[in-house]
Amino acid sequence: MAEANRLDRRGVVWGLIAVALVVALTFLGSDRLVWFDAALIGYLFGTIFAAFGVVYRYAVWLRRPPTAMLNRRGWDAFRRNKGRNLAALPSLAATQLLTQGFIRRRSRARWIAHQLVFWGCILAALVTFPLTLGLLHFESVGQQADRYQVYLSRVGTLSFDAGSIAGWTMFHALDIAAVLVLAGVFVFLRRRLNDPGALAVERGGDFLALAGLFAVSVTGLFLTVSSAWLEGQFYSALNTIHALTVILGLMYLPFGKLFHIFQRPGNLGVAYYRRENSVGAPAVCRRCGGEFASAQQIADLKAVLPEVGFDYTFATRVEGGEDGNYQDTCPRCRRASVTLAQSARVGGFG
């Protein structure tokens, strides 16, 4: 990948801004580091690295010509009918980003696995990042040994009994997340190992991502096992290993398969672009005269193609006529043209 060869200056700037924001958030959110847990410093560094990496890559990605075009068009489309589009956002986000019906329609097993991993990760992130940045901490209420209150920065919120269901859930949120993720990982693995088709299109990154999720979840669960049943045996060693896997995982985020978490919301932009295009003028095929896509998208493609090094124009046979563009051909006529061109070169069967 060209983008990997040397650092992109604008990307670096955006990345550094992200780092600054994380640092600022930590500083302010933890009430000037009062509530910052120094034991979690490794996690903080991992988070800072991930923030830089993700934002850097995102910035670079956004500047690729087709991405930039779509990004622009997506926002244009969104703004053109802001009220309606804003109103549509919650349901669009829910179906495209949260419930992920498009995966369910592909394969139910795959969807179940993805949902387990997805919600497991969300839950884990909601706990881990606030804790790491010192945004969240617990304090015991007065002299009651097992009554705690949740603090967001220095604002106290709900309190709970450690022995209650709510309390148990609160303290074991990460264990629950780990179990969800592990269940998902197992379904994914089973599918991959049993389905020769899935195995064949396997990419190295697929297994790496699953292995990472597995490692983080298992080492996290071991901590609970150690404290609950082994009276803290091996705790500090396990703690180090867990921290290491999490930090590695965070550092892997910008490079690997999991980057799709940040790309995927682009799908919302596509949805708006599509909606906008569907009411706009259609493209008309230069060969069959049929409508085949939106004129806007074809125009956008014709603008992007030269930027990525393609020239599909042709001189029209009419003298003084403007150049034509092969991209004005509908996909069906492209296939027909290709077939006719080939047939003409082997004896001309019509």
Binding site: P282, Q297, C330, P331
Partner: peptide, 11 residues
């Protein structure tokens, strides 16, 4: 005669 899966049409 016509492939319905061609693009351009909104999902």
């Amino acid at each position: 005669d016509f492939e319905l899966t061609d693009a351009g049409k909104p999902s």
